[in-house]
């Protein structure tokens, strides 16, 4: 099995989960209503847990231990998509991002239940079940607020248009795309992107939100190769603050 290709895939998935998990956790104590505060906090815990499981597989493939990998790399060593690192903004943006990201995330893990790399297939089967709660949560709110008041629709529409180029950046092709496909590890970003577009269309069609034509959107790429926005490094600094103050701290 092509280990380099596999590691690249695992790193970008783990980094996506860790970074968006951290962003979600920033809603703890600040949610627009208590239920949403709890929902984003729970999804944060799930996603950070998923990143730990993925980093653990990477460790078994010879990489450093999960804490070292999570807390000591710089921004340019991270492979998360730009979408996940953007600041939370207001609730409308966080909700749109949650919908666009989690739809892709759920489809990716669904596809990976068929992976020829057994540890990833097993983990994906488990994660797939958990993500049903995330996508249902996103879809429920998008459908409600996407058809509610002029303000909710206008806000979501604006955030949708802002987020879409970043969302397409999630499917930035890996240099190992062919190896991943031919070895049956992962069916590839193109297949995922197509499935994701169909799902996004299906949900948005049940709202008053307008989806621009796909060919009018230019993807914001770079995250997968370590070219990040100015927002990632401050997030990493905050995340690793305790470790940098006291590397021997236990928590």
């Amino acid at each position: 099995m092509n280990n380099e290709a596999l590691k690249e895939l695992l790193y970008k998935m783990a980094d996506d989960q860790l970074i968006l998990g951290h962003r979600n956790s920033e809603w703890t104590g600040f949610g627009p209503l208590l239920e949403e505060d709890i929902a984003f906090s729970s999804m944060a815990q799930d996603k950070v847990g998923h990143s730990l499981a993925l980093y653990t597989i990477l460790q078994e493939l010879g990489e450093q231990d999960p804490d070292t990998v999570a807390f000591t790399r710089n921004a340019e060593q991270f492979h998360n998509s730009l979408l996940t690192e953007l600041p939370n903004g207001e609730y409308d943006f966080s909700l749109i991002r949650h919908f666009l990201y989690d739809t892709a995330e759920a489809l990716r893990f669904e596809m990976l239940t068929q992976s020829s790399f057994e540890p990833l297939a097993q983990l994906s089967a488990k994660i797939r079940g958990e993500l049903r709660y995330h996508t249902m949560h996103a879809n429920t709110w998008i459908k409600q607020l996407g058809s509610a008041t002029t303000e909710s629709i206008t806000r979501l529409q604006k955030s949708l248009e802002y987020a879409l180029p970043y969302a397409l950046g999630m499917f930035e092709k890996s240099p190992f795309e062919n190896a991943l496909i031919s070895e049956g590890i992962f069916a590839g970003e193109q297949v995922l992107e197509d499935k994701w577009k169909r799902k996004v269309e299906e949900v948005l069609a049940q709202t008053q939100l307008q989806l621009p034509a796909w060919d009018t959107i230019t993807p914001h790429l770079g995250g997968r190769v370590g070219k990040h926005t100015e927002h990632l490094q401050p997030l990493l600094d905050e995340m690793s603050e305790v470790l940098r103050i006291d590397p021997t701290a236990e928590w």
Partner: peptide, 13 residues
């Protein structure tokens, strides 16, 4: 159902 997410990952409210 008030919230599919609860005080621990495995509980709904």
């Amino acid at each position: 159902l008030r919230n599919p997410f609860g005080p621990t990952l495995c509980r709904a409210i």
